[in-house]
Write a protein that binds this DNA or RNA. Structure first.
Lengths: 74, 74
DNA sequence: TCAAATATAGGCATATATGCCTACTTATTT
DNA sequence: AAATAAGTAGGCATATATGCCTATATTTGA
């Protein structure tokens, strides 16, 4: 198994999240509303600007109705 | 798929991390040193006291030489 | 091409994780 | 039982994520 840098990981995670969000037909705003977090955060997470929490990742998976492991599968 | 509460998720994550840490023969201190983070944080994460970042989870997986998905597999 | 919807960018205040430290507790080993 | 190792607890300062807001850019649809 090869490991990437932390910043690259955040970007990869964000891209993956964006993929699943669109796949499930959510806009950033809808996702943020369902999550109960700020819409600007979704944009930041998807671009890899911020290093969000595991709890947030879990809640996102919950809203998207996917397994959290899928968010880390890339 | 059934989803648990956020606080329960953090506790489950911590227990799982502890399982893998011991499985790989690390003390909290060794893991913290290899990670380059504070030992007190490991204790807090394992007990579900804090909601650590996805980047931290990734680095932990890297040090333990496991796939990050395993940390979320419970 | 224009309008509307969606996403990006950044500033500022606040909340929470983290680092650093000391003290205490629990577990392990002899 | 005593000594050592490992883990827990909490305080305080700092760093970073988050919330809230406004403005700009980009994409999508008519």
């Amino acid at each position: 198994m090869e490991y990437i840098e932390n910043s690259a990981f955040l970007i990869a995670f964000g891209k993956n999240l964006r993929k699943y969000r669109k796949l499930k037909g959510f806009t950033q705003e809808q996702l943020a509303n369902d999550l109960g977090i700020e819409i600007s955060q979704i944009s930041r997470i998807e671009r890899g600007v911020i290093n969000t929490s595991i709890g947030n990742a879990y809640t996102i998976a919950k809203v998207l109705k996917i397994d959290i492991k899928e968010l880390f599968d890339f």
